[in-house]
Design a protein around this nucleic acid. Structure first.
Length: 205
DNA sequence: CTATTGATGTTCT
DNA sequence: GAACATCAATAGA
């Protein structure tokens, strides 16, 4: 029952807290909010989820809006798996699939494990603050690629761990889209220094 | 700090 | 052709 491992803190969280696939079988907005404070670990690298965005099937900004295509099949597959897409022909971005046609985009994490590996993939000229702060940066740091599309988040080496305690969450409009900008479907850990962008309004101490 | 722009490949009009 | 769930480099205030 003792889950606060006193040694170091470099180890992933207790496998008892690994989120099951059923935890994702809900609307993306619900999951996106709930995932703030969770831990994302892929192949021994990752950290605390500090920023997410929700995308839904009836949402003009979503890749699932026009129905199932070749590149977005994962969004219509089982929940709790990865949906990976290429952004602007350059970056590989990571989602977790929720209910059918729903997905949550991981926009930023606070890097806590596998730092050397992530820095090697990103390049050593950036500090911790810019290592995983943005969907493209995060994808590069975690070594995301087309091979990960459809991969299940179902184990300690490739999974999501529930937050040990509730965290303060802020919400605002999504970033980098031109349609359906009115929905506050971007979520962040209040006051985090690892966001891709600050949330307008009071969140500083 | 803000604003601008090139890179780059897939998908849509 | 144009748009795109982006980033990094650059120029200027």
């Amino acid at each position: 029952m003792t889950q606060s491992g006193a040694s170091g803190g470099a180890a992933p969280r207790d496998p008892m807290l690994l989120l099951p696939a059923t935890a994702f079988d809900r609307p993306a907005v619900t999951v996106a909010r709930a995932l703030i404070g969770a831990m994302l670990v892929l192949r021994g690298a990752g950290g605390v989820v500090v920023e997410t965005e929700a995308y839904a099937p009836d949402d003009p900004a979503s890749h699932s809006f026009r129905g199932q295509r070749r590149g977005n099949a994962a969004m219509f597959g089982p929940p709790g798996r990865a949906y990976v897409y290429r952004s602007y022909g350059v970056h590989w971005c990571l989602n977790v699939v929720c209910a059918r046609g729903h997905a949550v985009l991981f926009r930023a994490i606070e890097p806590t494990v596998g730092l050397a590996e992530m820095q090697a993939r990103r390049g050593v000229r950036w500090g911790l603050q810019e290592l995983c702060s943005g969907p493209g940066r995060l994808g590069q740091a975690l070594g995301i690629g087309p091979k990960d599309d459809g991969a299940p988040f179902d184990r300690a080496e490739f999974g999501l761990f529930a937050a040990p305690a509730p965290v303060p969450v802020v919400a605002g409009p999504r970033i980098g889209i031109s349609r359906a900008t009115e929905h506050p479907w971007r979520f962040g850990l209040a006051g985090s220094r690892f966001l891709s962008r600050r949330f307008p309004g009071a969140e500083l101490p």
